[in-house]
Structure formats: C-alpha cells, structure tokens
C-alpha cells in the first residue's frame, strides 16, 4: 500500500471512530507541484488527502485556528512538527488535543525547484508524532549554493550589506503575509499593529521596513523553525530565509540547539545560563 493510501486509511479511521473532529493535511498537487491545504471533517473528505510533502504552508498555523474544536489530527513533516513543538512549549496547544500523523519529508518543490528552506533542511523527519506514515526520509546534503551565499554575505563590508539589504527591503510593501502564514507569529496584537502607543510607522518607509524586519526576526529567535512559509508567501520575493538562517545560526552557536527540536527544553530566549558568552558587552 503506498503512503498516500495508508494515510487516507488512517484518516478515515480516525474520523469514523470520532477520535478526531478534523484531519488537516494536503490535497493532490497542482501542475506547479504545490499541494493545497486540505481540511477533512468527514471520512469522504479524507479521500482527497495525499502524502505529498509539497504543501507551501506550515500546517501548524491552522492548528491554532481550530484549537477550541476538540482533538484534531494533523499530517506533519519535520518543520510542521517543530512548529507544533514550539507551540506546545509556549502553551498555545494541548498535546492531548493533537494526533500527529508524521511523514518523512521530500521537500517542497514548485515548478521543479526546491524551496530554499527545504534545500538546507536539517530535520526533514518529525521529531514528535503519534504514528509515522511510511518510512522516514533521508537527510539530504545542504545545498552548497545557499551556504556559499551566506558566507559571501558575511564577507561583505557593513556598507555593502546595508546597501544590498536596503535595496531588498525597499521593496517590502508591508502586507504582513510573512507574519500571517507563520505559525509561531501568533501575537493577538503584533507590535506593528499596536497604536497606543504606536511602536513602528505604518508606511513602507525604508527605516520602518528595516525595523519591522529586524524586530520580526528577533521575535522569532529560538522559535523560527526555518520552514520557509514566510519566504514563499512574500508577494515581492523578499529573501526572508536569509534573516531566518542568520538568527537560527546565532541561536545555535551561542545557546545551542535548533528551535522546536526538544520539547523538554524551553525556547532559547526565555532562559539563560550564567556563563552565556558576552564578548560583545563592554
């Protein structure tokens, strides 16, 4: 039985027995290769589920939206499961209200190209799940192009970095799609929407754009699971993963660990060690 057939069978069973009120997964891929999100509340609807790992969204995002409905099953790749872990660490979800159907991930491929997040993915397999559907995926070698681009960025002078980033972020139209698709960006009032006091200007002025992106990246430190949903959602193609990779690297190198990989540990920026490195402090 192939993986999709097994998944459909389990989803049907869970819904028929009333063990879950909904199964969140993805449907058959379109011509571009991207699978739409699929919400099944009846065994019939579950017939359209596939075990494609090419859904552009991070499915943990939807769990937040249905968390009051009872127990929900979700098909989780490595990054979906990491986001779920972060949400559990932060008490946004209840583990007993989740049934995680894990699948090993082959990456998100659109028009023959692997999404940049998937090209350097270190955790394609879910680290928490209730059952695995099919075999775990092999961890692929990270795309050397991406590491090369990151290394090149670090070699640039501050002036060059500023110039390039300005050109990039000048194009941001502040639509906040990057925030909306992120499961771990769930503040009821985001700092950009606060009006009493207003924290950051609403215009797409370069200075405000920079501040938005720096603070967003900071808020995601130790919490971003590098799924790339924000990057794929951006209508003007801003390289958000460049920010996310850098922050994840800082957190990994200074405090250890990748976000959402260890449920027993709190997120890195909510704790400290007395001997955390402080070479940058005078």
């Amino acid at each position: 039985m192939d993986r999709s057939e097994k998944l459909r069978q389990r989803a049907r069973e869970l819904l028929e027995k009333g063990e879950v009120v909904m199964v969140i997964g993805s449907g058959p891929p379109s011509d571009s290769g991207i699978s739409p999100v699929l919400f099944a509340t009846t065994p019939e609807q579950a017939e359209n589920l596939t075990a494609s790992t090419s859904c552009a969204q991070n499915l943990a995002n939807y769990l937040l939206k249905v968390r009051d409905r009872g127990k929900v099953a979700v098909v989780a790749r490595g990054c979906d499961a990491r986001s779920i872990t972060v949400l559990l660490q932060e008490n946004q979800l209840k583990r007993e209200n989740l049934y995680i159907l894990g699948i090993g991930c082959e990456g998100i491929v659109e028009n023959g190209r692997k999404s940049v997040a998937c090209a350097v993915c270190r955790h394609p397999n879910p680290l928490i799940y209730d059952e695995m559907i099919g075999e775990p995926a092999a961890v692929a070698e990270p795309d050397p192009e991406v590491s090369r681009a990151d290394a090149e960025w670090e070699q640039l002078s501050p002036d060059e970095r500023w110039e390039r980033l300005s050109a990039e972020l000048d194009r941001c139209i502040r639509c906040y799609a990057c925030r909306q698709v992120c499961p771990n960006c769930y503040c009821p009032v985001c700092f950009v929407d606060a009006s009493m006091p207003q924290l950051v200007g609403r215009t797409h002025n370069l200075s405000d754009n920079m501040v938005y992106h720096i603070i967003r990246a900071l808020h995601m430190a130790g919490r971003c699971v590098e799924c790339g949903a924000c990057h794929r959602a951006c209508p003007v193609g801003i390289d958000l993963m460049r920010f996310n990779r850098r922050v994840a690297k800082t957190v990994r190198e200074r405090f250890g660990g990748d976000a959402g990989t260890d449920l027993s540990q709190p997120p890195a920026l909510t704790v400290f060690k007395p001997d955390d490195p402080q070479e940058f402090i005078r």
Partner: peptide, 21 residues
C-alpha cells in the same frame, strides 16, 4: 541575564544588516 541573550541576537542582527559596529 535574560537581556544578555536578547542583546546578543540583536547585536548579531545589526551586524548582519550592516549597521556600523
């Protein structure tokens, strides 16, 4: 101690963005 972690990430991000050291 908690601030130190935050400042460390901010400091790195500022460097990344090209804000002058």
């Amino acid at each position: 101690f908690v601030a130190r972690r935050r400042f460390a990430v901010l400091n790195d991000l500022l460097e990344f963005c090209g804000i002058e050291p």
